[in-house]
């Protein structure tokens, strides 16, 4: 399996280093991975995820995505014939390939569902309008919301909004999907429908990084689990290893609180 994102000693400090949200995280994300990040609140999970597409600008460290260090303004790319070329890193280009789903959905309230989905493909990828709409309809059918194409976000339930947010990100055909606590703002009975969509996505082979408190999802769908605490990566392994045979005390303590 090839590495898609390589995170190297990632640091994020606030208040001139007084608060260390991320304190040296190193991890490789491979193609096809479903990586679930768990940990107590304030452990830096979300900061880590948001750093991956530079919504948070890291204080130090590298994020190498598809061979390009996206934390730098310029990157050196080695071409096939061995020559090295210095190119400007356009973060917008890389963000297109990293879909992101937020805790609070962040749909555009002034646009219909269809416009929410087609805006970025049309404006950023210069896709034709009817082409984009046909594609959006296909995705909407996949999540069972084709009849709501002309509705506004406020007319949907939380679970529906989050499913739209997922397919909106999929419209850009990303190579990796980042989920930032996608079910934390949902009513309990709506969590299932969103997790179902995510599970299907994982089965289709999408690379995913998921920050979540849904331990059931981590066990069932994840193939790697990261445990973070105090901005550090404390333990990493398969779901089986982490949940049934935890090594560090922080993880044991955490699991005793969340697994009843």
């Amino acid at each position: 399996m090839s590495t898609l994102i390589s995170v190297n000693n990632l640091k994020k400090h606030y208040n001139k280093g007084a608060i260390k949200a991320l304190d040296g995280v190193t991890v490789d994300i491979n193609k096809g991975d479903v990586m679930v990040v768990i940990g107590p609140s304030g452990s830096g999970k979300s900061t880590f995820l948001r750093s991956l597409n530079l919504l948070e600008e890291p204080t130090d460290g590298d994020i190498i995505f598809n061979g390009v260090d996206i934390t730098k303004k310029k990157s050196v790319v080695t071409k096939a014939d061995g020559t090295k070329v210095k190119t400007k890193v356009n973060i917008d280009k890389h963000r297109q390939k990293m879909g992101m789903v937020f805790q609070h959905f962040n749909l555009f309230p002034h646009k219909t569902i269809m416009d929410n989905m087609t805006l970025a493909p049309i404006q950023v990828k210069h896709m034709k309008k009817d082409e984009a709409e046909a594609k959006a309809m296909k995705l909407l059918e996949r999540v069972g919301l084709a009849d709501r194409a002309n509705a506004y976000p406020i007319q949907l339930s939380g679970g529906q909004k989050q499913r739209i947010a997922i397919v909106r990100a999929l419209m850009m055909e990303p190579e990796v999907m980042l989920f930032d606590e996608p079910t934390s703002a949902l009513d309990p009975e709506m969590v299932g429908e969103v997790l179902e969509v995510m599970k299907e996505l994982a089965e289709d082979g999408m690379t995913m990084v998921v920050v979540t408190h849904e331990m059931g999802f981590a066990k069932e769908v994840g193939n790697r689990v990261l445990f973070m605490a105090d901005g550090k990566l404390m333990e990493e392994g398969s779901p089986d290893q982490l949940f049934n045979n935890p090594q560090c005390d922080r993880l044991k303590d955490f699991l005793s609180k969340v697994l009843i």
Binding site: N53, L55, D92, K93, R95, Q96, M98, G99, M100, F102, H104, N106, L107, F108, L119, A120, Q123, V124, K125, A165, R168, A169, M172, L178
Partner: peptide, 18 residues
């Protein structure tokens, strides 16, 4: 306007101007 709107737009690859 909520900062989440900008985050969503930028994460879809839109530029600051868009």
């Amino acid at each position: 306007i909520d900062g989440g709107q900008t985050e969503a737009a930028r994460s879809l690859g839109m530029s600051q101007l868009q």
